[in-house]
Nucleic acid binder design. Structure first.
Lengths: 341, 341
DNA sequence: TGAATTTATGAAATCGGTTGTAATATAATT
DNA sequence: AATTATATTACAACCGATTTCATAAATTCA
C-alpha cells in the first residue's frame, strides 16, 4: 500500500513547516514567492493530493450540493440537472444526486443522507406524494440553504423557483377554447403539489372566464407513465359525446395519448385538439407536432444553482434571503396538434 | 451558531469515554448492551449527527461513487443513471455525477475533481472526442476501481460493460437488407469510441456477407443533436439514386430524420426503411413506430453499479478482477418503420 | 543607529471520530 | 482461595489540513 503524500512530507523534504506548506498551497499572501514556488514544485513532483476530509473537518464546508429529484430519467428533469451541473462545475462544486422516485419515504431517507453527507446546500423538486416537509427542518435549523425548484412547497418561507403554472395552464386552455373546443379533458398527476394544483386552477379559470361550466369528470389523474397511455385513451373514448380538446401535463404523455388516439381512428387536431407541456424534443418529432408550453428546464437548473451558490459565497447579500419565489417566463408554442382553424 | 453535538459531549454527559460512545454507535460487539442503549438514547435526544469527515479521515472511505457521463439530458444516459442511483442508494452509497459534454478537456477536469473528492469507485462513459485515458491513471495507481460502461476503452485492462454493438448493427443492417434495401445510409457519431466503431463494422460486415459492395459515401458522421436533423436529411435527399434504407445510431435522431423525410414527401418505410437504436420511448410514439435495437440502459446502470459495489465490499472476490468485459443482451425490435414486406 | 513596522515562518492546538493496547472488573475454573 | 479467562471500558495516539499566536528576520523611518 503506497501511502499518500501529505503536507508533512513536503514540509520535511523542504525543511519548512507544515504551516508554510499549507499556506503556500492555499495561496496565502504571507508566503514568500520563492518558497511558494518551491512548495508547488515539490507538491507536483510528489503527486501530492490534498486530503479533502482533513480540510473539511476544519472548514466545515464540503463544496458539495445535493439535488433530490423525483426521477432521473425524465426529459425535463435531466435538462434541469444538466443546467445545474454546468453551473456547479464551473464554480468548483460537486453534485450529489438522488432520486425520490415520487415516494415520500424515499425523499425522507434521501434528505437524511444528504444531511449526513453535509452538503453545503440542497436543491429539491418534491416527490409526487410527499406529505409534509419535516424532513427538511434539519437543514433550516443548521442554516443550510434550501431551494425548491419546479415542484415547490410553501414551507417556512423557503425560496422556490417555478414557472407560473396557473398562467401557463390558463393560456393553454384558453387557446383550446379559442380553437372552438367545448369539451376539454385535462390529464395530470395528483394535485398534491403546486405544479399540478396550479395548472388545474388555470384550466378551471379559463372555463370560468368563458362561462363554460366546469365538469370534474373531464379531469383525469394518472401518474403519467408510458404504460398508462392506452388506458387513459380508452377512458377518454368512453366519454359521450367525445371530447374535442385534450390538455396533458407533459409532452411525452401527450405524444403517448396522440398515438393511441390515432390508433383508434381519431384525427388530431380535427377530432381532438391536443396541448402538451414542457416543450420536450418529442413535441417537435411526432405527427402532428404538439402545441405545448415552453418550460425552460435547462435555464431553470442554471438559475437555481446560480442562486444557491451565490447565496453560499455571499451569505449576507444572497438573493435567497429576501426572495421568496422566482418565476421564470414560459410561453405557449402553438403547433399543428391544436390548430383547428 | 449552535455547535454540533459530538461523541465527546455524549461521553461527558454519560460519564463514559468517547471510545465507548464511538464503539456503541458503530455496534461494536465489545460494548455492554445497557451502555449501548444509554448511548443511543442520548445520541437521539441530542440530535447527534456523526461527522463524516472525521470518520472518513480515519477510514479512508467516502461511500461515494463518481459517475462521469457524456450528457445528463439524454434519454439513454438518464436511464442508466436511474439504474445506478437505485442500486447505489440501496447499498448506502452516494452518487457524484458530472457530465463531460462530449469534451475531452472537461472529462479530464471531471476525473481530477472526482479523484480529489476521493470517490470510492468511478463509473465512466467516455466522451465523444476523448483522445487518451491518461486522466484515469491516478485511479488505477491508487487502486480505486474503475469501470467503463457503454462507451468503453481498451485501457490497461480496465473492465467495461457494453452490448455487442457489432452484432446489433449487423442485425439491424441485415434486417434492412432482408427487407430489400440495396442502398443503406448509416448515421452515427465519430468512430473514436468503441460504440460507433463497432456499429460501423457490423454495418459493413452485413454488406460483405451479402456481397454488396461497401460505399463509404453512405456513412454520415454527425453529433446527433436535434438541430442537425434537417441538414442530414438534405444530405440524404441529394443522393442519387435515393437510398432505400437508413440506420441511425439513436432513436431520437432517427425520429428527427423521419420527421424531416416525411416533410419532404418521403414515405417511411415504402421509400426509405428506417432502423434506430436504444429503444427509447420515442421509438414507440412516432409515426411509424421505429424499428430499433433494445438497449437496456436501466439494467446496464444497475449491473455496472452492482459490480462496482460488490468489488468494493469484497475486494478479493469481486468480478472486476477477472472480468474484462461484460456484454449485455440486446435485440432487434422490428416495428413499422422498416417493414417493407 | 535605534525604534517601529513589515514580512515570513513555525509551534502547537484544533476539527471529531477511530483503534491498538492497557487497565479494570467480573465470572469461571481448579 | 488463588488463578485464569472473559467482558467492559478507558487512555492516548492518530488521520491531515488549518489557524491562532508568537517570534525571528528584514525593512523602513526618525
Amino acid at each position: 500500500m503506497n501511502k499518500e503524500t501529505t503536507i508533512y512530507d513536503i514540509a520535511k523534504d523542504l525543511g519548512v513547516s507544515p504551516t508554510t506548506v499549507s499556506r503556500a498551497l492555499n495561496n496565502h499572501p504571507a508566503v514568500n514567492e520563492n518558497t511558494r514556488k518551491k512548495i508547488f514544485d515539490a507538491a507536483n513532483k510528489s503527486g501530492y493530493q490534498s486530503n479533502v476530509f482533513a480540510a473539511n473537518l476544519r472548514n466545515k464546508r464540503t463544496k458539495k450540493i445535493g439535488v433530490i429529484v423525483p426521477r432521473l430519467n425524465s426529459s425535463f428533469q435531466s435538462s434541469v440537472l444538466a443546467g445545474m451541473e454546468k453551473v456547479a462545475n464551473d464554480s468548483g462544486f460537486n453534485l450529489i444526486i438522488s432520486q425520490s422516485l415520487e415516494s415520500y419515504e424515499k425523499e425522507v431517507s434521501n434528505a437524511l443522507t444528504m444531511f449526513n453527507s453535509r452538503v453545503d446546500g440542497l436543491l429539491v423538486s418534491i416527490a409526487g406524494d410527499s406529505e409534509n416537509m419535516d424532513h427538511f427542518t434539519p437543514f433550516l435549523r443548521k442554516g443550510i440553504p434550501l431551494l425548491f425548484y419546479d415542484r415547490i412547497a410553501d414551507y417556512s418561507n423557503t425560496a422556490g423557483i417555478t414557472i407560473d403554472n396557473f398562467q401557463a395552464a390558463y393560456n393553454a386552455t384558453k387557446h383550446l377554447i379559442e380553437q372552438g373546443c367545448k369539451k376539454i379533458v385535462h390529464v395530470l398527476r395528483s394535485t398534491k403539489n403546486n405544479v399540478y394544483a396550479d395548472r388545474l386552477r388555470g384550466y378551471k379559470y379559463a372555463f370560468l372566464e368563458n362561462e363554460i361550466p366546469f365538469n370534474p369528470d373531464l379531469v383525469i389523474f394518472t401518474d403519467l407513465i408510458e404504460e398508462k397511455g392506452e388506458e387513459i385513451v380508452k377512458q377518454i373514448l368512453k366519454m359521450n359525446p367525445l371530447p374535442d380538446g385534450l390538455f396533458v401535463s407533459n409532452d411525452s404523455f401527450a405524444a403517448n395519448c396522440i398515438r393511441h388516439l390515432k390508433l383508434e381512428g381519431i384525427r388530431i387536431p380535427e377530432d381532438i385538439a391536443v396541448v402538451g407541456f414542457n416543450n420536450e424534443a418529442i413535441s417537435r418529432l411526432v405527427e402532428p407536432n404538439i402545441t405545448t408550453i415552453n418550460y425552460p428546464g435547462y435555464e431553470m437548473g442554471e438559475l437555481a444553482m446560480k442562486n444557491l451558490i451565490n447565496h453560499l459565497e455571499n451569505p449576507s447579500e444572497g438573493m435567497l434571503h429576501n426572495t421568496n419565489k422566482i418565476t421564470l417566463r414560459s410561453e405557449l408554442i402553438i403547433r399543428a396538434s391544436s390548430k383547428k382553424k
